[in-house]
Amino acid sequence: MSDDARLRRLELTVRRRVDGTVHGDHQGLSLGTGSDPEELVRYQPGHDVRRIDWNATARAGEPYVWLTRAEHALETWVLVDRSPSMAFGTTDREKADVATWTAAAIGLLTTGAGDRVGLGVVGTEGIRWTPPGAGRTTARRVLRADPGPRDGVPTTDLAAALRVFAAQAPRCGLRVVISDLLDQPATDSARLPWEPALRRLSARHEVIVVEVLDPRELDLPDVGDVVFVDPESGAQRVVGTSDRALRTAYAAGAAAHRAATATAVRAAGADHLVLRTDDDLGRELTRFIHRRHRTPARSARRTR
C-alpha cells in the first residue's frame, strides 16, 4: 500500500481541549456551541429550550437545561528543523527529506471542519513562518519550500526555536516538532538544552515530537579511515572506524543520548515518534497514530 493510500485512511486525533473562535469538531476549553452536554443549570431567558432536561425539570419543579462545551476548529503548528545537521543521510533519503514528508503528512491528516495548519522552518538564517491555512495547502507549501543552505552556523538553536514557537501561536492546539534534536550540549545542567522550552510548550498545547535519525548516527561501520565534517562549523576530523573499541564506545554513547532524549520528551508530557531514514515512513506513522488512539488522554495542564 502506498503512503498516500495509508494517509487517506488515517485521522490525527487530538485528546486535549483547544482554544479558538471558529466552530469545528474539537472540544473547547469553555462552554458554548457544541453537541456534548457538559453542565446542568437552571433555565434562564436566552437558553436553548431544546436542551431542557425534562427528568431534572420534573424532579426540581422548575426548568433545567444542559449547557454544552464549545467545539472549535483545531489550529495546528508544525516546526520543521532544516538546520545543516538535517542534511545528512546514508540511505536513499536524508533526514531533511523525512522531515519534509512528515510535515506534509501532518497537513494531510489535519483536515477537519475549519482546521488550519501553520508552518515554521528553522534554517541557518532563523525561522521562516507560513501563516495557517488549509491542511492540504500547507502540505503543498512545505513540499515546494526552498530547502535552504546545507551548511553554515544556525542563528537560532533548537531551544530558542521552541521558545519562539510557543510565542508565535499561543492559542491552545496541536504543536508538532520535527527535528533530529541535536543541539549544543548543556554545560551547567543535566538537562538537554531544549528540554525546559519543550516542557513550557507542552504545558499549554498537545505536542508531538518527531525525532529523525539516520542509521549511521547509531553505530559506525568498519570502513577504515573516514573524514567527518561538521556541517554547521566546518570542523573536520579523521576517524579510524576499524578500531573496535571506538565503534563500541560510539554505539554506547549514541544509545545513551537516545535514551536521554526519549526520557526528556516523555518528562515534558509530549508524544514521541522516532523516524529513521531507512524506515517505511507511511507504516511507522500509521502505527504511531493507532497507538495514540489507544492511549488515554493526559490531563491537560493549562497556563495563562
Rank of each mutant, 00 (worst) to 15 (best):
M1Q: 05
D3M: 12
D4F: 12
L7C: 06
R8S: 10
L10N: 00
L10P: 00
T13P: 11
R15G: 04
R16V: 10
R17P: 07
V18Y: 15
G20N: 02
V22C: 05
G24N: 11
Q27E: 13
L31T: 10
G32I: 09
P37K: 14
V41A: 09
R42S: 13
Y43S: 01
Q44H: 10
P45I: 00
R50M: 08
R51P: 05
I52W: 01
I52C: 02
D53S: 11
N55S: 09
A56Y: 05
A56G: 07
T57S: 15
R59Y: 12
L67S: 07
T68R: 10
T68L: 13
H72A: 01
W77L: 13
R82L: 10
S85D: 02
A87G: 07
F88S: 07
T90I: 12
T91Y: 07
T91V: 05
R93H: 06
K95D: 13
A96S: 12
A96T: 03
D97Q: 01
T100R: 15
T100E: 06
W101E: 02
I106C: 00
G107Q: 01
L108T: 01
L108I: 01
D115Q: 06
G118T: 03
L119H: 05
V122I: 11
V122S: 07
W129M: 01
T130C: 08
G133N: 03
A134W: 12
A134N: 12
R136T: 12
R136Y: 07
R141T: 09
V142K: 00
D146I: 05
G148Q: 03
R150L: 05
G152P: 11
G152A: 08
T155G: 12
D157N: 14
R163H: 12
R163D: 15
F165W: 03
A167C: 02
P170Y: 11
P170I: 14
P170H: 09
L174I: 06
R175G: 10
V176C: 04
V177E: 00
V177S: 00
I178D: 08
S179I: 13
D180P: 11
D183N: 11
D183Y: 13
T187D: 01
P193K: 14
W194F: 09
P196A: 10
A197W: 03
A197I: 04
E206F: 11
D214T: 00
R216G: 14
R216N: 11
L218H: 08
P221T: 09
V223Q: 02
V223T: 03
V227W: 06
F228T: 04
V229A: 06
D230C: 07
A235D: 15
Q236G: 02
G240K: 03
S242T: 04
L246C: 08
T248S: 07
A249K: 04
A249Q: 10
Y250R: 00
A252T: 06
A254F: 07
A254D: 11
A256R: 15
R258W: 01
A260T: 08
G269E: 00
L275Y: 12
D280Q: 04
R283C: 03
E284Q: 13
R287G: 05
R287K: 13
H290R: 15
H290S: 12
H290L: 14
R291Q: 12
H293C: 12
R294P: 05
R298N: 04
S299H: 14
R302T: 15
R302I: 15
R302W: 15
R304I: 03
